[in-house]
Every structure is written in C-alpha cells, then in structure tokens.
C-alpha cells in the first residue's frame, strides 16, 4: 500500500497508521486470537506500572449513549510480569509494540523508561500522563503543562525509545499540553485519553460505577477527540495520534483529515475483536480508491 513516504514516530517507521488504544486490547495477545496483530501499525498495551495493581472495586464498566464509562483503576500485571510473560509473546507475534506506562511522578516515569529501554520486542513507549481513574498523579500531572514537560523529559533522559505522550482532554488549551510534551522530548502525542463522566442509576440512586466516576469512551466522544486533534496538530510539528471513538474506517479518515498522523482504535475492540483490522482494511481501500497515500490525508481538511 502507498504509505512509503515517512509514517514514523521518531525513528520508528510504522507499517500503517492504525494502532490499538491502550486499555482496550489487553496486552495485545488477546486480539492475536482473532487476527494477525503484526498487520497493525502498532499495539499499545494496557498501562504498565512499576508494581502490579489490582484495580478498582466493581462495577467497573457501564454503558452510556453511544459509549461507555470505565473505572478499571489501571489493573495491570506490573512491570516484571509484563517483561517476563507478555513482551516475549508480543515479540513472537511480530507486533510493533508500544508499551503504555503509568507513573504518578516524573521520577516514576524515569524508572519505567530506564527499565524498558533496550528490551527486545519493544518499539516505543506511550506515557500515560492522563489517566482519570487514579487519585494520585494521573490527571493532575497530565493537565499541567509544566508537569507534562517534566515527566516527558524525565523519561526522555532514560531511554532512546520513541516516546509518545498521551494527553488529557481535560484542559482548555490542548496546544499548550502538546507543546509541553514536545519540549520535553516527546516524538509524538496521543490525543486524547478518556474524559471523566458520571452515570447514576435512578432506581438505586447509586453511581453505576464502584469508583463513582469513570472515563468516557466510544463514538460519543469522537467529535471532541477530532477537535482536540485538530488543535493539537496545529500547535506542534511532531505527529499527533488520534484517539477517541474511532470505530469505523471513516472515523480514522476523519481523524487524519483533522491532523492525525495515525489513529488508535479503542472501545470498538470491545464490540468487535477485529475492529482495528477492519478499520485498516477500510482505510486502505479508501486510499486506493482515491489514489492517496496515508500522509496525503493528514491535516487535509478543507477549510475554505
């Protein structure tokens, strides 16, 4: 397919612009039972922290109009188990692996980056600067440009791996967050993480999630994500990865027209395990029909 002209995150050339979104594909291996995950541009793992985390009390998910709320609480196997059990299998599957890492302080991001640097089978890091579901760090760190720059710089000093900074939508100035990430040394930014929401059961008068609030995802948030991608891509020269409600190939094209160099498919994988592949196949067919390369779409929205 026509993607030759530079589709890259830092030094990492991507096969194509369709990735999975962190937290919606497990460690990637679960999807490998449904299709060849090496066909994707990348697989972005569940957020990995230094220590294992059990996660939040249930219920952790509930459906909302054209979307869902989740408060998983970053349940994950921890860095050691990720390296010992998950990464070798991802490598064997031939996947382009983006390890999503979760820290609450710049020092933690530095340690995570140091420990992951140079690991065979690992291609890039995505710094989760914006998880809405943990009390410490997470959102607070991710909405302050100064802290974002610090956290990215801390990781940058500890690894040569391409770095992607995943940004929070809970800001009035996504451009400032994107610039801060770029200043800190990020090779790309992912826009956006989930945005906090709340759903209440009117019969029981209880929140529908054990954690009360959760992150909203799915088609419902796509217009917000497209707008933020549009703004972020005009603020920085590094690539923007569009995330938020991409479920069909048309959504990927829309994200790219808004300014995304690549996209991540998230909640759609819950609905259909082959969703990321279907998005890719549709995107390729569209590009072929229109005789376009991927990069021709990036930021190509007509504004006049």
């Amino acid at each position: 397919m026509s993607g030759e002209r530079k589709l890259a995150i830092g030094a990492l050339a991507l096969r194509n612009p369709v990735l999975t979104a962190s937290g919606t594909c497990g460690y990637g291996l679960e999807l490998a039972r449904y299709f060849d995950i090496a066909m994707l541009g990348g697989v972005c793992t569940k957020g990995v922290s230094l220590e294992p985390r059990a996660g939040n009390p249930p219920p952790r998910v509930c459906e909302t109009p054209a979307g869902m709320l989740n408060a998983i609480g970053l349940a994950n196997v921890g860095l050691e188990a990720f390296l010992a059990e998950k990464l070798p299998k991802l490598q064997a599957a031939g996947a382009t692996v983006f390890a999503n890492v979760l820290g609450t302080t710049p020092a933690e991001f530095e340690r995570l980056a140091r420990k992951l640097d140079g690991r065979p089978g690992l291609h890039a890091l995505e710094l989760n600067l914006s998880c809405p579901n943990v009390k410490e760090g997470g959102l607070r760190l991710g909405t302050d440009p100064g802290r974002v720059r610090e956290a990215v710089a801390a990781a940058r000093g500890a690894t040569k791996l391409p770095l992607v900074a995943k940004l929070s939508p809970e800001t009035h100035d996504i451009g400032a967050l994107a610039r801060a990430a770029a200043d800190g040394g990020a090779d790309a930014v992912s826009v956006m993480n989930t945005i906090r929401g709340l759903a209440i059961d009117v019969r029981t008068r209880r929140p529908r999630l054990g954690n009360v609030m959760g992150g909203l995802s799915g088609p419902a948030i796509r217009p917000l994500a497209v707008r933020l991608v549009f703004e972020a891509s005009r603020a920085v020269s590094i690539p923007v990865i569009g995330v938020g409600g991409v479920a069909r190939w048309e959504d990927a094209v829309e994200m790219m027209l808004a300014g995304a160099t690549a996209v991540q498919v998230g909640t759609a994988s819950f609905v259909h395990p082959r969703a990321p592949l279907d998005v890719l196949v549709g995107l390729d067919a569209y590009c072929k029909e229109q005789q376009l390369a991927y990069h021709d779409l990036v930021g190509a929205v007509c504004l006049d």
Binding site: C25, G26, R60, V61, P273
Partner: peptide, 22 residues
C-alpha cells in the same frame, strides 16, 4: 458481572477474590 468485552481485554468484569484481588 457487568461486561464490556467478554473476552478478557477490558478488565471490566472484576469479581473480588479472597486475598484482596479480583
């Protein structure tokens, strides 16, 4: 349990186990 995906990728369907995990 409330399920989003049904096949192990969302970690939504947690049920508490003795010992504090799920």
């Amino acid at each position: 349990a409330m399920m989003a995906c049904g096949y192990g990728i969302c970690l939504g369907c947690a049920v508490p186990t003795p010992g504090g995990g799920y």
